[in-house]
């Protein structure tokens, strides 16, 4: 039997939908990072967070390292650094805990999210 993907084990798109508002609210309410996420186009921002969560959940996405670099280049020039990346990761982990996701699955998600650090920070 083929092992189900991480995305399927987490619950697929429904799980992403459950997580995205909790996650985005945490990020927006965090004064140390909210400026990177604060936008007049909140719907567009929420859509970006959903795309990010889909990727971190191992779901279908077409992100490449180059996409992540290009998308964050402007923010890096505005001071985006490790401490901000860590804060976002912390909010992601807290979101998953709040949704009572199994620790082993949380670990897998955090590994995927962590793997984007170099590209997000443009290294």
């Amino acid at each position: 039997m083929v092992k189900k993907s991480l995305y399927d084990r987490l619950g697929g798109e429904a799980a992403v939908d459950a997580a995205v508002d909790i996650f985005y609210r945490k990020v927006l309410a965090d004064d140390t990072i909210s400026r990177f996420f604060d936008s007049v186009d909140m719907d567009g921002q929420r859509a970006k967070q959903k795309a990010f969560l889909t990727m971190a959940f191992g779901g279908p996405n077409a992100y490449t390292g180059k996409d992540l670099r290009n998308a964050h280049a402007r923010l890096v020039s505005q001071g985006l650094g490790d401490e901000h990346f860590d804060a976002v990761a912390k909010h992601l982990e807290a979101t998953l805990k709040q949704l009572k996701v199994a620790p082993a699955l949380i670990k897998e998600v955090m590994t995927i999210a962590g793997s984007t650090r170099k590209d997000v920070l443009g290294r």
């Binding site: 985005y24 007049v40 909140m42 719907d43």
Partner: peptide, 25 residues
């Protein structure tokens, strides 16, 4: 803009918050 963010943080779903700033742009 400020109120939209506040409403979202206070628990309203974005799909339930109606405003016009996008049309302005």
């Amino acid at each position: 803009h400020e109120a939209k963010k506040a409403c979202y943080l206070f628990g309203a779903a974005l799909a339930d918050i109606h405003a016009d700033p996008f049309e302005l742009k």
